[in-house]
Nucleic acid binder design. Structure first.
Length: 563
RNA sequence: AAACCUGUAGUGUAAUGGUUAGCAUACAAGACUUUGACUCUUGUGGUAUAGGUUCAAAUCCUAUCAGGUUUACCA
């Protein structure tokens, strides 16, 4: 067996060090903790891939936990969508958890902190508190309520919980350090009053715990060993530890293991945005058709576009884990889907920009069945039958009356092969009054049929064209996508709104003709349209209309060069 | 400005003080080709800057520069 040394990323290194320093392998436990306030996007896939990937690597459980502490933003719809997306990516979670399941435990711990003089009720407005908080360079000042008695705090907090106060009138704060250089330690809020119905707890609670108070303690309750999150939470780590260490002394019998938080850089993709809030705006303003619009960087959008879980997971694997800011070239994502589909997708023929081709010496009314290989990369994919006749569609770009030697396609007097069929020779063409070509005439070599074994069939011609027989063709709608934004980093400009970079031509709807075998194609099925790209059957397809999404084009060195 | 974090080919990442700084992608050239695809071969291109420690520095130290994060009753 070849011992290939695989380098560890910095998180794996931390875990290996912990293991070496006494952490037991069976106590390794991870979690992916989305807030159900939107759809997951490709950026989340990195976080998912890291935690679930570690779970697979160390054979450790990974929880899916919904961080649902803000009923104003969260909905069941999002919970369902997130579960679907994570499952589709192929990850299995150990437990489905909700922070809201821990509200009572959190409340009990809060009471203990109050009793120990470590938390107090503040009755000022948020503006007043913000003013007292100071700035990173100037220390904060204490709230006039900071030294309330334990009895008063207990009484007020109980009344908060019982709904006796209005929203905004009181909050519970941790008593830490108003002069800390870390702003998060300047007596952070633990609870606020929110008289809103929660998608799971209904109206049971009118006080809701804040992120910092909830998140770390949820990790602790679930006995997560390594709580992995993105870099913007780095300053929260001190607070994470403060809450954890204070609660630990109350509950170490029940919860003996203390989790640790570590941070990695989030993923950014070129030519798109990665913020739920900003993506929501695209949906709400009708720029896209929904969260799963095939142009969206959401997992559901990529799924509908035709991306495979394998391609996305390979992408994440290749991207790696570090603490550097990054913008990953979307070309890498495109490479990964091509790489995957090149192995898996059957080859078919479809013409997106048709022009009529007539084979003048082909017997009138004759039809033939040609045999076409489904996938040269995959022998067991077998072959299929494709009907052929004397009247075909080919791509308009595949014919020029005359062209230089670099043009491998059909011209007057030159030969090309029709894929899986015959060698033809351009003879003439007819045009309308504006000079547009309406019909191309050619002759064919009857002995040159593909696979016939004749001398003529083995002749080499430089170009090969895809085609469909007009008589047998199936009409289809093809949705061709371009990037949603014209700028590489649309939301990285201080002086310009990302909406100003919207690409107005990100969707083109085309009437195309495809080979008849595709009449049976099922929703979601993926194909390579030879010489064009990869396509899948959109779920809008019905018995009257066949609809394809263009997933990605083939690598194209020709049009690039000829530009 | 303060504190903290981060700087390795265009992009992403590896090298855990010790070969000529590796890999992927992108780009370019060529071979092959019944897909101008795939595959294969080759090439261009990099340690932010300046000092220091050391037999030896991408790696350790210092300074500088650049970028990021934090100053929500969001997460």
């Amino acid at each position: 067996m070849s011992e290939e040394k695989k380098s560890l990323n910095f998180i794996e290194q931390i875990i290996e060090d912990d293991l070496a320093n006494g952490v037991k392998k069976e106590n390794l436990r991870f979690r992916f903790p989305p807030e159900p306030n939107g759809y997951l996007h490709i950026g989340h896939t990195k976080a998912i891939g890291i935690s679930f990937g570690l779970g697979e690597k160390y054979n450790a459980p990974v929880n899916l936990r919904f961080d649902d502490t803000n009923p104003a933003k969260e909905e069941q719809e999002y919970v369902d969508a997130i579960k679907e997306d994570v499952a589709w990516l192929g990850y299995k979670w150990e437990n489905e958890c909700y922070s809201s399941d821990y509200f009572q435990q959190l409340y009990d711990w809060a009471i203990q902190l109050i009793k120990d003089g470590k938390a107090y009720v503040d009755s000022q407005s948020s503006e007043e508190m913000a003013k007292q908080k100071g700035t990173p360079t100037t220390v904060g000042v204490a709230s006039p309520y900071r030294d309330r008695s334990v009895e008063d705090n207990l009484d007020l907090f109980t009344k908060m919980k019982n709904g006796e106060f209005e929203e905004g009138s009181h909050v519970l704060r941790a008593k830490i350090d108003m002069s800390s250089p870390n702003m998060l330690l300047r007596d952070p809020l633990m609870y606020r009053i929110l008289k809103k119905s929660h998608h799971r707890t209904g109206n049971d609670w009118v006080i809701y715990p804040m992120y910092d108070w909830t998140h770390g303690e949820s990790d602790y309750i679930e006995q997560i060993s390594h709580s992995l999150c993105s870099l913007e939470f780095k300053p929260h780590r001190d607070l994470y530890n403060w809450f954890r260490d204070n609660v630990y002394v109350y509950s170490k019998e029940n919860y003996p293991l203390a989790p640790k938080q570590r941070e990695f850089s989030r993923l950014n993709l070129s030519y798109t945005i990665m913020s739920k809030r900003k993506l929501l705006r695209l949906v709400e303003e009708g720029i896209v058709s929904g969260w799963d619009d095939p142009r969206m960087p959401t997992i559901s959008g990529l799924r509908r576009r035709g991306y495979t879980p394998a391609a996305i997971r390979n992408f994440i694997e290749t991207v790696g884990v570090s603490k550097r800011e990054n913008i990953i070239d979307v070309a890498l994502l495109e490479f990964k889907i091509r790489e995957d589909l090149n192995k898996k997708a059957n080859r078919v023929m479809g013409v997106l920009n048709p022009v009529k081709l007539v084979i003048t010496n082909y017997p009138e009314n004759k039809e033939e069945i040609l045999i076409a290989e489904n996938n040269p990369e995959l022998e067991e994919a077998g072959s299929r039958e494709v009907p052929f006749s004397g009247e075909l569609y080919i791509e308009r770009e595949d014919f020029k009356e005359e062209a230089n030697r670099k043009y491998f396609r059909l011209t007057i007097g030159k030969e090309v092969r029709l894929k899986n069929g015959y060698i033809i020779k351009g003879e003439s063409c007819s045009k309308d009054e504006e000079g547009n070509i309406t019909e191309i005439h050619c002759t064919y070599d009857p002995l040159s049929k593909s696979g016939s074994g004749t001398e003529e069939s083995k002749r080499k011609v430089k170009g090969t064209l895809h085609w469909v027989s007009i008589k047998h063709a199936v009409e289809a709608e093809v949705r061709v996508y371009d990037r949603l934004f014209s700028d590489e980093a649309p939301d990285a400009h201080k002086d310009k709104d990302y909406m100003s970079f919207i690409n107005p031509n990100s969707l083109k709807i085309i009437k195309a003709f495809v080979e008849p075998s595709l009449g049976k194609a099922k929703v979601g099925e993926r194909f390579q349209f030879q010489r064009l790209g990869y396509f899948n059957v959109d779920r809008d397809t019905n018995s009257e209309k066949l609809i394809f999404n263009k997933i990605v084009g083939l690598r194209d060195t020709w049009t690039k060069k000829s530009k």
